[in-house]
């Protein structure tokens, strides 16, 4: 990466006039490139240091911590004593769901421990992610198509659609908590007596409904940006050729909006995988609505180092999902821009 950074600034002065690439090398040009490159890397250093401090350091620190045991109680003094190195015990605690047995060794974590909830929390997290992102994509697409049309009061609709997204998640969660209370609006409106936050599937749907309500506008906005990149002539040409509305959507809109759509889905997926505040406030994680992030936060109060292991696992899971998206599903977040600029040249 550092070597690539070197030549880039050199092009700029050349771009105004003659083609530098084909011209014969001038005297001292090597030195000029070298010193400019050096300059560039020194100028980049503050940014790299900042990134190292705020990104690399916490990640490394968390990984180091995850291999340490939490402080244990010394039975003689009744005081906590340093845990020391733990090897991979903290990871075993989560992935194999093995807890320390009182008699030494390990046993399967009994229900009521955080360790027993790792796989169910992982399943819940993915369930929420898949369902909410699917619903948000469909609804967001629909909203984007409406917003892309020209009609009276379009800007009003666009602003109104954005309102749920502008409300802080914690406030949204409280709002829906009142709606889903037993004596709340949801039950009054439909004349039902469902324990929305007190039984498994209603609780899951409550979280999903609240999340979809809140983040569909975000999806709609990103897709709208993609839709507006499509030139109107393409549609006109298709109309002249006699394509039906469905054909136009399938053959023009979908393929052309795909890059923007994939980025939107990627962002939402990564966001949904670390879902925390909605279920935490709405259900407190009861009735199988505990997500990985809720599990991490609960564990922090019981021991930092075991929590560090879980957050490392969560990090790897999210990283893998992002990797799959970018590598195999063509969600090009970064290269898209370089591709576009190449195209312009």
């Amino acid at each position: 990466m550092a070597t690539e950074l070197g030549p880039t600034p050199v092009k700029k002065p050349a771009s105004g006039g003659t083609e530098l690439h084909h011209a014969p090398k001038g005297v001292g040009e090597d030195n000029a490139i070298a010193s400019q490159g050096k300059w560039a890397s020194w100028l980049l250093a503050p940014a790299i240091i900042a990134l190292a401090v705020v990104i690399v350091y916490p990640i490394i620190s968390a990984i180091v911590m995850s291999f340490q045991a939490d402080a244990g109680l010394d039975p003689a003094t009744g005081l906590f004593a340093e845990g020391g190195p733990a090897g991979i015990t903290n990871y075993v605690n989560w992935i194999a769901q093995q807890c320390a047995s009182p008699g030494g060794g390990t046993v399967a974590c009994p229900p009521g421990t955080l360790g027993s909830q790792f796989w169910s929390a992982t399943a819940t997290t993915f369930f929420f992610t898949i369902v909410t992102v699917a619903l948000e994509t469909v609804l967001g697409f629909w909203m984007a198509i409406i917003m892309a049309r020209t009609f009276k009061g379009r800007s009003l609709v666009r602003a109104a659609v954005l309102v749920p997204w502008a409300i802080p998640t914690a406030v949204t969660a409280k709002l829906w908590l009142f709606i889903f209370a037993f004596e709340g609006i949801a039950n009054k409106l439909f004349n039902t007596s469902i324990l929305w936050t007190g039984s498994e599937w209603p609780a899951k749907w409550a979280v999903i409904i609240a999340d979809v309500w809140k983040t569909t506008p975000f999806m709609a906005l990103l897709i709208l940006a993609g839709l507006q990149m499509i030139p109107a002539e393409v549609y006109e040409a298709a109309k002249v050729d006699g394509a039906t509305a469905w054909q136009r959507f399938r053959m023009i809109t979908l393929p052309l909006v795909k890059p923007a759509l994939m980025v939107a889905i990627l962002f939402r997926t990564l966001d949904a995988l670390r879902m925390f505040d909605l279920p935490y406030i709405l259900t407190g994680g009861s009735n199988n609505t505990t997500t990985l992030s809720i599990l991490v936060i609960s564990q922090i109060r019981q021991g930092f180092n075991v929590a560090a292991a879980l957050s490392t696992i969560t990090f790897i899971i999210i990283f893998l999902v992002a990797f799959i998206f970018v590598r195999f599903l063509g969600a090009n977040v970064v290269e898209q821009q370089t591709g576009a600029s190449k195209g312009k040249k």
Binding site: A45, I48, I49, A52, V53, V56, Y57, I60, S61, V64, M65, Q68, D70, A71, T77, L79, F80, A81, E82, G83, G303, F304, N305, A308
Partner: peptide
């Protein structure tokens, strides 16, 4: 240089993160 700085920072942090002794 940035990398070394990050490493030395994490070394400091390792001690602090390791929670309390008596």
């Amino acid at each position: 240089a940035a990398g070394v700085l990050a490493l030395s920072l994490s070394a400091c942090g390792g001690g602090g993160g390791g929670s309390s002794s008596t």
